[in-house]
Each structure stands twice: as structure tokens, then as C-alpha cells.
Nucleic acid binder design. Sequence first.
DNA 1: GCGATAAGATGATGATCATCATTTTAATCT
DNA 2: AGATTAAAATGATGATCATCATCTTATCGC
Lengths: 192, 192
Amino acid sequence: MRVSREQAAANRDRIIDAAGALFRAKGFGGIGVADIMKAADLTHGGFYGHFASKDDLAAQASKRAMARAAANWQDVVAGAPGEPFAALLKHYLSPRHRDDPANGCVFAALSADTARSGKVVRDAFAEGIAELIGILAEAIPGRTKPARRRKAVAAMAALVGALMLARAAGGTPLSDEILDAARRELLASMGH
Amino acid sequence: MRVSREQAAANRDRIIDAAGALFRAKGFGGIGVADIMKAADLTHGGFYGHFASKDDLAAQASKRAMARAAANWQDVVAGAPGEPFAALLKHYLSPRHRDDPANGCVFAALSADTARSGKVVRDAFAEGIAELIGILAEAIPGRTKPARRRKAVAAMAALVGALMLARAAGGTPLSDEILDAARRELLASMGH
DNA sequence: GCGATAAGATGATGATCATCATTTTAATCT
DNA sequence: AGATTAAAATGATGATCATCATCTTATCGC
């Protein structure tokens, strides 16, 4: 049952979005092509008309999620002109974000899988991480530019690590403690 | 071909160690029971005589790796009485550690998988994280005890996040930059 | 409008995997 | 020593999965 070109493009879009959420929720290996297609209201058959392989889809879904994250961070920064860094902390280290990995940070969800992937995927991730670091560097106070850059890199690592550990300890008191401690210490480290 | 009780215990030990390395290198789902047994120089058949399930093995291997990590951190701290925190940073955020996940930190390797696992696994991980945080808190300067605890929690998150991102960006210049920036900023945040 | 074409559905295929059953063989117990 | 037992090997089993082949049907180019 052929559909229009626009319909097909919309379908591909839905597949990429569904994959983006499911990969983040369950990992690259934790979800199958058939289930992704089902989540996009399609059957598994059409998959290889849209993508060369599951890895191809993973790459596209990751890139889209990274671009969305950058846009999202830009919005948060733009929405809090006085305290952009504090606003980012509040969003990123919230229980809400911790409890919704499917719609959350790609890096916190898929860095481990990425570390085990090929160079192409790792390069793409490095680019995405660098983009968020750039946004952070703009949102951070600091005397010299290299100092701001260094602080931004370290802050990025702290954000991702705190979210990941909070998720790994999910359901224990430590989970909330990690989010709070990371937020407070990061704020303090920026001359609070 | 039956073996002695000690031999069987040694075999089980080798299985747990092999699993600990392979799980860290490839993730819980990235390696099969048969390959783990092969790495322990056994065939797959005896597996269920030693473990109730693959999950059971994953739990035991994780617990052992966490205990080893705590002992390792204690050793590092004891070996650098003047600057225990700096010594931990140097070990943890080294390219050597980044490039050898199979023998490295369980939390950096398996937190994402753990976040997707059941409450039992998450509780075990929370306990392991808390143990390392305790060691960090002792190695950190700070006026009050709660302040040290808070700094330790945040530092733990920063360490794990930096290692994970450095691995995800492995092979790019950003990877080294992350390790360096995290080390320098963490040192600075402890009154350098 | 008609023929070429391509999207999506249905339904293999072969590989991988966790788990289990059976068999072999050596250690432990009496 | 002989009987018992348990560790490990061999070899299913059924499930899941990525990928591909084929078929149907509606769109698009003319």
C-alpha cells in the first residue's frame, strides 16, 4: 500500500523519533527494529526502505536527539538571562529529567553504548558534546575564555555523571542526594 | 568430567571474574553466557550449576567489581597520605583507565545498564556508589562533615561523568580535554 | 487514464542466545 | 573398593532478532 512522498517522509520522521525515545529508554541493543516500527505505527517490513541498517537509524536518531538537546539548552539559556547556568542546572538535574530518560539527554542515556560503538558514532557524539559545552561556556562566568571553556567541560561531565548515577541509584535516597549535591556544588564552583 | 570442590570453586571464581571484565567491556546484553564461559576456559553447559541465571551472575560480578573498586581506592588513598584526593583523580581520570573499561570502574561502565535494570540491581549499585563516596569524603578537605559529604557526592558524579564522556568521545581531542578539565577543576574546587 | 514505481505489509531466513536435558567422568562418601 | 554424587561437556529447545524476498496497492510521471 504505497503512500504519498510526504506521507513517507512523515513516516520516516516518526520512525526516527520513536527510535530516539526507545534507544534512550532501552539502549541501542535493548530494542528491536520491529518494536521501533510498531511504535511508529508501521510494520517491520518497510524499515529497510528507509534506512540502510539499524546502525544507520541509530546514527540518525542520535544526531536528531543531540540537535534537539542543543536547541533546548539554548531555549533555557535564553529564558533566564540573569542566571543562565543556574537555569540549566535546575532543568538538567531535576527528578523529572532523571525519571524520563526516553525524552532526556542522549549523552546520559547512550554514552556507554557509544563508547562501545565504532569511530563514526563516537565522532558524532564528540561533536554533540562539544556543542553543549559551547552553550555552557557562554552561560558561565569566568575571567578568561580558556578558563570558561575548562569550567564548561568539567561542568558538562558533572551534569552527565550526576544524572547517570542518580538513575543507576533510582529509587534510593542517594538518587535525590546526588542531584542536589551536584547542583549545589556546581553553583558554588561558579562563584555561586 | 567431575572436578574437586576446590577446583569447582576456582572455576566459579574465574567465571565471575571473566564476566566482570566482559560485562564492563560490552555491557550486560553485549556478551552471552557461552562466551563468558569460554573466557573462563569452560563450556557453556556447566553454567547453571553455578548460577541461577545470567542476571544472578551479573549481580555477583557487579558486587565483586564494586568491592574491588573500593579496595583499590583505599589503596590509592593510603599510598598518598599528603594528597589523597589528587592521587585518586590522577588514577581515575587517566587515559589508561579510559582505555581499559574491562578492568575499570563498574559505575562508568554499567550505570546506564543498571538504570534499566530492576530495583535489586539498582539498590546494589547505590550501596557501591555510597561506599566510594565515603572514601572520597575522607580524602577531601572541608570544614564541616555535611560539606565534605556534599563535595564527595558531587565529585563522584564528576569523576564518573568525565570518564564516560571521555570514552564516548574516544579517539577525538575532546576525549583528552575532558579528562584534563575535570581533573583541574576538581582539584581547584577542593581549595586546590 | 495508464504504466512504471515505490511504500508498506506479510512472511521467510539464518544467526544468536538463555535455558534445559542428557551424558560422561571423576571425586567423595561409606 | 564400590556406590553415590556432582561438575562439566555435548547437544537440544524455543525465543528473539536483523535482514531480505515477495506481494499488494496506491502514487507519480507521462
